[in-house]
């Protein structure tokens, strides 16, 4: 049984159909990437999984159970952590407070333990440790992204949804971030990664899907996707990776 499975999911934004029958699966322990151009429906796919968008049709199965009718709060409690596009750091809370709130989906964990876990996150993301008590909005884009991922991990997710973590970051910081994604994955977290930076995403992924205007067109291992002429032309800028 896959950890996550989408069966023929269709989602709308108002009258616009953003997803047209998407079916995909993520196995336990996998790092799967979802590639595609702007507006292809990548973010909508993640929002449909995490409950921010309710699908008009189809099923979202998590550990075999349908979750498409649950709200985002309930889905977070099942162990799906969504780090959305644009990081969405709480601007008026400190870095440490942002991290602590990441564990809001876990019931009855004492504050002291949460503080210890937050300290652990600072060892994974040493870049943000000096800003522990600074307000969220004062961080740079790269630091905010680190913080967003750290906050997402506080949920102890079974499945981590990462939406465009490299967006707007300098190449060196992107490298650093993907190093961290590898570490998180090696520690056993299943990840569904949405990226426009296809080269970077395929360098860490086990499998990938390509999404075009709301439909999945190609699926395969990084090697297969990198060998696919159409995919290369469309998403890899013609580079030979």
């Amino acid at each position: 049984m896959p950890l996550l499975e989408l069966r023929n999911v269709a989602s709308y934004y108002g009258n616009v159909q953003a997803l047209k029958g998407v079916s995909l699966r993520v196995e336990q322990g996998e790092l799967v990437t979802l590639l595609g151009a702007n507006g292809a429906g990548k973010s909508t796919t993640l929002k449909t999984i995490s409950g921010l968008v309710v699908p008009a049709q189809g099923e979202v199965l998590f550990e075999g159970k349908p979750i498409q009718k649950l709200g985002p709060e309930a889905i977070a409690r099942l162990g799906i952590s969504h780090v959305p596009e644009g990081r969405r750091i709480f601007p008026g809370l400190t870095v440490r407070e942002n991290i602590l709130l990441g564990a809001s989906n876990r019931k009855g964990v004492p504050r002291r333990q949460l503080e210890e876990e937050a300290d652990e996150k600072f060892t994974v993301f040493p870049e943000i440790k000096p800003f522990e008590n600074a307000l969220g909005w004062t961080l740079s884009g790269g630091q905010q992204q680190m913080l967003a991922v750290a906050r997402g991990l506080m949920a102890k997710p079974k499945l981590l949804l990462l939406d465009e973590p490299s967006l707007g970051l300098a190449p060196l910081i992107v490298q650093n971030l993907f190093g961290t994604i590898r570490t998180i994955r090696a520690a056993g977290t299943t990840i569904l990664l949405v990226e426009q930076n296809a080269n970077m995403a395929l360098s860490v992924a086990d499998r990938g899907y390509v999404l075009e205007t709301g439909s999945l067109t190609v699926e395969g291992t990084p090697k297969e996707l990198l060998g696919n002429e159409e995919v290369r032309a469309a998403y890899l800028g013609g580079h030979h990776a």
Binding site: P72, E73, A76, R77, S81, R88, G92
Partner: peptide, 22 residues
């Protein structure tokens, strides 16, 4: 933490929901 959750709710409701804050 409850106070912080109230603040988080006032700053970004959708993000608060994604974190499991009711």
């Amino acid at each position: 933490l409850l106070g912080k959750k109230l603040q988080a709710t006032s700053q970004d409701k959708d993000m608060a929901r994604l974190l499991g804050i009711p």
